[in-house]
Structures are given as structure tokens and as C-alpha cells.
Design a protein around this nucleic acid. Structure first.
Lengths: 156, 156
DNA sequence: TCTTACCTTGACGTAGGCGTTAAACCGCGC
DNA sequence: GCGCGGTTTAACGCCTACGTCAAGGTAAGA
């Protein structure tokens, strides 16, 4: 039940805005990374702003974590659980069910957090090494310049 | 001209120590990520400790940055330039040449540093988002628990 | 010398992540 | 109602990063 107020976008516009190809959007749909979009009468796909954000999120995960789409699917699926959780806010009944979903969501996000945290730590380490290297090179460069100062250019 | 003192390793041992398959080692060689190793009379590849480190480095880059091998090749090639630079350190003659090499090395390492820096920043951002999310979940969970406290379980 | 484990090249296979093309259909201005 | 561009599904292609045989050569101990 999509919000009728929402401005819907055709695949071409979504492609342009997200920087992926139309083929990629259909491919993600095929692989379950994007839910089946609403269609207009003729069958054309209609995407929401939510869909656009989702695509952007997928690409960030792909770029940053460099993991397979299957893993990304798990991640975005987990987010869908949350959205449902929020949508289904009926204060009656099924509190236990909600709690279970919430616990599952927490597990997933904690897992993601762990991965990202470990990666950042390793990358910080690498960054420090590179920085150190740059300092070394600068030192060498200085030494070269001093050497040249003492020993004039083209001594012949 | 490899160091005769060095203990050489066959492909199997390198595979075991680095955790990649022999196929992968040959593949990296084929793609130029590893230089052609020395061989024993029968044709068996002989690797040095340097090679082992290089493989480990390649894998770190692959894991961390998640970039294609082609890009990784550029990075390790750049490091080779540095190694040559250090090896060719003849304090006489060709100061300008040295300076050019050094400048090139600095460029390369600055490029690597830029990549790593950008990625760490993006990952820090993602980490912050995940953390925020976890806080939200905890809040929700608390709310659920309070809700249950007021409204006793299974009211029938 | 024989065995056995390890190694060689070569060739084909595969999973993921799309690109590309084809042939038909839809929407819309005129 | 025509033209034209955006969209549809389906199918095949391609590149990466290896895996997996296959068929044989090598090293080294019994």
C-alpha cells in the first residue's frame, strides 16, 4: 500500500539519480535486493524515494565493504524488518513477536558494526604506516637538497 | 640476483603460510602481481620471504579496500619503485635523477594515502550511523519492556 | 629403482555483477 | 493516429578471480 502522495519515478530517472544503470536496477530486483516496485498501467516500474535511498545504500555497502550482493541483501533485508516493525506499530498483541524481531535486528546491526569497526581499525593502521612513509620521504628529500647545497650542480 | 643466504620456499609452503591456494599464487604471477619467482632445476618455483610478505600485503589490500586486482597491482608496483629507489642508493652522481624518483614515490604514496583516508572517513561515518541505530533499538526495546510492565502478559 | 608427494603447464568451468542486443510495447506531443 | 523515445522481458556475452581437472615431470626416501 504505497503512499499516493509520493512522487513516483520511472526507472530511467532512478538510474540517472543513483548513477547505476537500468539493467542494474532490474538485476537488483531480480536478486531480491529491491522489492518488486509498483507499476503503472502499461507495466512500467514506478520507484519511490525510499527505493532511491535503498539503492544508494546498497552501493555504499558495496563500495565500502566490498562484500557480495548476497551479504548486502541480508543487511538490507534486516533493515526492512525494522521498517515493518515501525509500520506495524499496533500497541496491542504480539509484543513478544516484536521483541524477537527487534532482537534479530540488533544482532544484525551489531554484526555490521563489528565488521565496520574492525575494518576502520585496520585502515587506520595502514593510514598511519603511509603517513610515516611520507615523513621518511620528506626527510630523504631534505637530505638530498642539503647534499646538493654542499656539492654544487654539475661539478665539471 | 637473489640472496643465496635466503631460505627459499616452494609454492605449497607459501600457500600454506599465506592462506591462499597455489592456483592463486600462479594467478597473481600471471597477472603481474608477483614477479616471476626463481626456479629450481626441475622448474619448481622458489619463493622468498619477501614474496610471502608481498602476498600478505596483497590480501590485506584486497580485504580492506575491496578494490580490483588491477588497482592493487598499481599499488604493489609502486612499492617496487620504492624498493628500487632504496637499492640504487649510490651516494655519488645523479642527484636530480634521485630527486625525480623520490618525487614520484611521494606522489604514489600520497595517492594511496588519499584513497585510504577517504575510505576511512566514509567508514567512520557508517560506523556512527550504525551506532546511532543501535541506540535507537535499545530505546525501542526499553519502551517495549515498559509497555509490557503496564499491560500484564496474556491478559485472559 | 620404485613409490609417493609435490610440482608443472594447459585448458576448461564457475559465480558474481552486470553490459548489450533484440523485438516488442507504452506514453505522449502533435 | 503517428512518430519517437522511454520501457519491457529474454537471452546471450563478458570480465574477474579464481576452482578444478588432466597429464605428466621432479625430488627424495626405502
Amino acid at each position: 500500500m504505497p503512499d499516493p502522495d509520493e512522487a513516483y519515478l520511472q526507472i530511467g530517472e532512478v538510474a540517472e539519480r543513483t548513477g547505476v544503470t537500468q539493467r542494474t536496477l532490474r538485476f537488483y530486483e531480480e536478486k531480491g535486493l529491491l522489492g518488486p516496485p509498483t507499476r503503472m498501467d502499461g507495466g512500467f516500474r514506478l520507484y519511490s524515494e525510499q527505493d532511491v535511498k535503498r539503492v544508494e545504500h546498497i552501493r555504499r555497502l558495496q563500495d565500502l565493504l566490498g562484500v557480495a550482493l548476497a551479504e548486502i541483501k541480508e543487511m538490507v533485508d534486516a533493515e526492512e524488518v525494522l521498517r515493518e516493525l515501525r509500520a506495524q506499530y499496533r500497541p496491542d498483541s504480539a509484543i513478544d513477536e516484536k521483541r524477537r524481531q527487534l532482537e534479530r535486528a540488533i544482532d544484525v546491526v551489531q554484526g555490521q558494526y563489528g565488521i565496520v569497526k574492525q575494518k576502520t581499525e585496520q585502515m587506520e593502521e595502514m593510514k598511519a604506516q603511509l603517513k610515516e612513509r611520507l615523513r621518511t620521504f620528506d626527510r630523504w628529500m631534505k637530505e638530498l637538497n642539503e647534499l646538493e647545497a654542499k656539492e654544487p650542480v654539475a661539478p665539471g
